[in-house]
């Protein structure tokens, strides 16, 4: 069991730890709203030469950075360890050797300081990231979680009650960006590189498939990626910029169409886009436009809170505390942890 039921509580100062992929992050959150500090140590430069995240390289970097970052976060927040009221930590999904380090540190802190330990699902963290900056998020919320590892549409009716409306059957959207970038020789990370090239290109130059556009909230991006690779072999290939623009347009079309359909079906009062790919400006603009037309407020986290960070983990932990959940010191790392409702 990853959680025990206890009397609901409301930790004043909550420490957040995140180490599920290639970012180590430590945050201190006050009263669930005030982010005293949110430090993120990114490994993007380390993995660039390999063209993707190498787990062993990632884990070594997490281990080096984690404890110094914790010290720096406390210093910057003007907090002592003894002032903390709870520790929230990502315990999955992610690279098991990386998740485990955050969990090891968190359970040691919680055990020695005698404060609650709260295991948080990484995706749950993304879901709550929007609440850190917006106090007017009305429920139900329909959130598109889109990153290098995940593509899901999730409905939240009350805090802790989630329903996954659909997810990808193969590649995540961010993964498709990375693979296309690699095939085009644009380097890593693929998202920003493709976006930059797309800005110079013409999205109507090449019509690429919009996979499963009519099929509910399920996604599939591997066919689209293959269509790009097949086009690269054709004699009348378009320029790299046009190809990137056409590819990005197809991905954005699918993401926006499905999110808005889900929002209408759930009678959502707010829409949000979270996760690393939410930093893509084409997606942001198109989603804004679509939400305005549909008359549903869009409340996405700002760029810095879209990518992996510990503030969102602390916020999710605060919500779980208010639902009366805490984790035992035997909490484990769960590399394939699914997002499931807490109530």
């Amino acid at each position: 069991m990853s959680h025990d039921r206890v009397e609901p509580y409301s930790p004043r100062l909550i420490l957040g730890l995140e180490s599920s992929c290639d970012e180590t992050s430590v945050a201190v959150l006050e009263e669930g709203r005030i982010c005293r500090v949110n430090l993120v140590s990114s490994q993007v430069a380390l993995h660039e030469k390999y063209g993707g995240v190498v787990p062993e390289v990632a884990c070594r970097a997490h281990m080096e950075v984690l404890n110094p970052l914790l010290q720096e976060a406390l210093d910057q927040a003007g907090t002592r360890l003894a002032d903390l009221d709870a520790v929230a930590v990502t315990h999955g999904p992610g690279l098991v050797g990386a998740v485990l380090l955050g969990v090891a540190a968190a359970k040691t802190l919680a055990g020695l300081l005698e404060i609650p330990l709260i295991g948080v699902n990484h995706l749950e963290g993304h879901l709550y990231s929007t609440f850190l900056e917006h106090s007017d998020v009305e429920l139900p919320l329909v959130c598109l979680l889109v990153s290098g590892g995940h593509t899901q549409i999730v409905e939240m009716t009350t805090p802790g009650a989630y329903r996954v409306l659909g997810s990808t059957r193969d590649d995540a959207a961010g993964e498709a960006f990375d693979k296309v970038a690699k095939a085009l020789g644009l380097g890593y990370p693929g998202g920003p590189r493709v976006e930059e090239a797309a800005r110079r290109g013409d999205p109507s130059r090449l019509h690429l498939p919009r996979p499963m556009l009519e099929a509910g909230c399920e996604f599939s991006f591997s066919g689209l990626k293959t269509a790009v690779l097949v086009h690269l072999q054709s004699p009348d290939r378009v320029s790299v910029d046009d190809l990137c623009a056409s590819f990005q347009e197809a991905v954005v079309d699918v993401l926006v169409t499905k999110t808005l359909r889900a929002a209408r079906e759930c009678r959502a009062r707010t829409v949000a886009v979270a996760g690393g790919v939410a930093a893509n400006s084409a997606l942001r603009h198109r989603m804004e436009e679509a939400c305005r037309k549909a008359g549903i407020p869009l409340r996405s986290p700002s760029m810095g809170l879209c990518t992996d960070n510990a503030a969102m983990i602390a916020r999710a932990g605060w919500e779980l505390a208010r639902l009366g959940l805490r984790s035992p010191l035997t909490l484990d790392a769960r590399p394939n942890l699914p997002l499931s409702s807490r109530i």
């Binding site: 884990c59 281990m63 984690l66 404890n67 098991v96 050797g97 540190a105 040691t108 300081l113």
Partner: peptide
């Protein structure tokens, strides 16, 4: 084992940091 090694070290470091 790389993973075990890191787990022990992070646990020890964090204990020392708290204490």
């Amino acid at each position: 084992s790389f993973t075990g090694l890191r787990l022990g070290i992070v646990t020890a470091r964090t204990m020392a940091q708290v204490l």
